[in-house]
């Protein structure tokens, strides 16, 4: 079927299967491989993207369902030259170890900060609770979100 997707403020016309997951379309058809597949069952959050500003698991959304929604992947958050405050703080505070959960973590954190620019520690943990990390123990991730929140507030 023919669909149109809006990803990172760009429009794409695509031919997809009706049961094709958004995750696969982003990665395989659009080459946006910053979005990761961890578990494929909505349990790990590695595939988190933003749909109309809200975090969703792109492994549980069909590409067809995403039509008409504004999508953002990690590629739309920032880049090497213009990193988002979250990307900067994750790197500076050592919140990235193997990096597999990082894109999803950043997007869940962005969804939080866009809605609540001064979250408490508990609110940060709650917002990140669908994103599993096996390396960091979440400690530096939470601190990086706090640091970014301070920078965004400034």
């Amino acid at each position: 079927m023919n669909i149109e997707l809006r990803v990172n403020e760009q429009d794409f016309r695509l031919v997809v299967e009706p049961d094709e997951r958004l995750l696969d379309v982003l990665r395989n058809r659009l080459g946006l491989i910053g979005t990761k597949e961890g578990c494929g069952e909505g349990e790990c959050g590695a595939c988190t993207i933003l749909m109309d500003g809200k975090a969703v698991n792109s492994c549980l959304v069909l590409a067809a369902q995403a039509v008409g929604h504004e999508l953002m992947t990690i590629e739309g958050v920032g880049d090497r030259l213009h990193p988002h405050p979250l990307q900067k703080s994750f790197v500076e505070l050592g919140a990235v170890q193997c990096g597999f959960c990082t894109p999803g973590m950043i997007l869940s954190a962005k969804a939080l900060l866009d809605r609540n620019s001064q979250p408490s520690e508990e609110e940060i943990k709650e917002a990140m609770s669908g994103n599993l990390c096996r390396c960091t123990g979440y400690d530096k991730i939470v601190k990086a979100v706090q640091r970014a929140a301070e920078e965004v507030a400034r």
Binding site: A55, V56, V61, G130, N131
Partner: peptide, 9 residues
Amino acid sequence: MGSPAIRNQ
């Protein structure tokens, strides 16, 4: 229920 991302969907 679930996680924030699940609750959004």
